[in-house]
């Protein structure tokens, strides 16, 4: 319980600091939302009027405090830039709520692909006794790691979209319309996110297993008459997973926070694209919430890693 309370306090403090940092950054970067809405041709009177309307003329501290107050009350504010229709402003909640599932599902599929592919691959590699196989896996994973994901995205689109015609490039299916179709479309972007990470994780797991294979308890297991297989799966894998889990946590956080490139390549309306466009239009309420969201996800993933660690290694909870 104490552990949980500690984690929550840390989370709140981090979110607070990040929101301040983002706010300050917005004060410092040149250009503001008024120019981006009205264009450079607008009269100074019109600009001044809009500034007053958006509350941009208040002192920064006052603006920050009132924004925090609203957020704490559950009101995330409205976007400066987007509107529902001619008369209604677009609430940030609605704007993000629309795009969030796209990014989350993309990340989820990628993570599942990584776990499903990397663990057997890493174990297989650690077990492989022939030099040729070892060298092949080395080159193969090195290549997969070196390819940037946007280029991989292009290859995947070409191969599966144009050559094999498994999916229609650019033919994004909204999840509200057709959920299975949506997942089917996301599979390929997720694949191009996952491939380099699969290679990294497999390599990492393999190294971790080879280190563990030298541990004393492995010799003990053999002395009991365990087969190679039993030693591998019954004893080594669990211990070798410890560092891999930390590594996976970092990768997952990276995927969730960094889906921008792939969303761009595959034309996905996710939060990555929204973040880019909101920054360039200086849409402060949207950017601030997106940054807080990303921070939250990253911390949450690390929290899960911590929990998983305690489950796998009984020594940790005693420390």
């Amino acid at each position: 319980m104490k552990y949980l309370a500690k984690k929550i306090i840390t989370l709140i403090m981090t979110l607070f600091l990040v929101s301040v940092a983002a706010f300050v950054a917005f004060q410092i970067i040149p250009g503001d939302v008024v120019t981006s809405i009205l264009g450079t041709e607008a009269t100074p009177e019109r600009e001044e009027q809009l500034r007053e309307e958006l509350g941009l003329n208040d002192p920064p501290v006052k603006r920050y405090v009132s924004w925090v107050g609203d957020v704490l009350k559950g009101d995330l504010g409205v976007s400066y830039r987007y509107s529902k229709n001619m008369n209604e402003m677009m609430p940030v909640t609605e704007l993000i709520g629309d795009k969030l599932p796209v990014t989350l599902w993309l990340a989820a599929i990628a993570v599942i692909l990584i776990i499903v592919a990397a663990i057997p691959l890493g174990v297989f590699w650690a077990k492989s006794k022939s030099h040729a196989m070892d060298a092949f896996m080395g080159v193969f994973t090195q290549a997969a790691m070196a390819i940037p994901s946007f280029f991989l995205g292009i290859i995947v689109t070409y191969l599966f979209g144009i050559v094999f015609k498994v999916f229609a490039p650019g033919g994004y299916v909204s999840y509200q319309d057709n959920f299975p179709g949506f997942l089917g479309y996301l599979f390929f972007p997720a694949l191009s996110v996952a491939i380099p990470k699969i290679a990294m994780t497999a390599r990492f797991l393999r190294n971790s297993m080879l280190t563990e294979m030298k541990a004393d308890y492995v010799r003990t297991a053999y002395s009991k008459g365990c087969s190679d297989r039993r030693v591998m799966y019954g004893h080594v894998l669990r211990n070798a997973m410890m560092p891999v889990i930390t590594f996976l946590g970092m990768i997952i956080a990276e995927i969730v926070a960094g889906s921008i490139v792939v969303e761009q390549v595959f034309g996905l309306p996710g939060i990555g694209r929204l973040l880019i466009s909101s920054i360039s239009t200086r849409d402060f309420p949207v950017v601030e919430i997106l940054i807080l969201y990303i921070t939250f996800v990253v911390i949450f993933v690390y929290f899960l890693v911590d929990i998983l660690y305690r489950v796998i290694d009984p020594r940790i909870s005693n420390r």
Partner: peptide, 22 residues
């Protein structure tokens, strides 16, 4: 493997590392 464990067994020097920690 038919002998290890059942007909001959071993006690090692360092009992902490010789047992699987997890």
């Amino acid at each position: 493997r038919a002998y290890q464990g059942s007909r001959m067994s071993m006690v090692f020097q360092e009992p902490m590392t010789s047992l699987n920690p997890t």
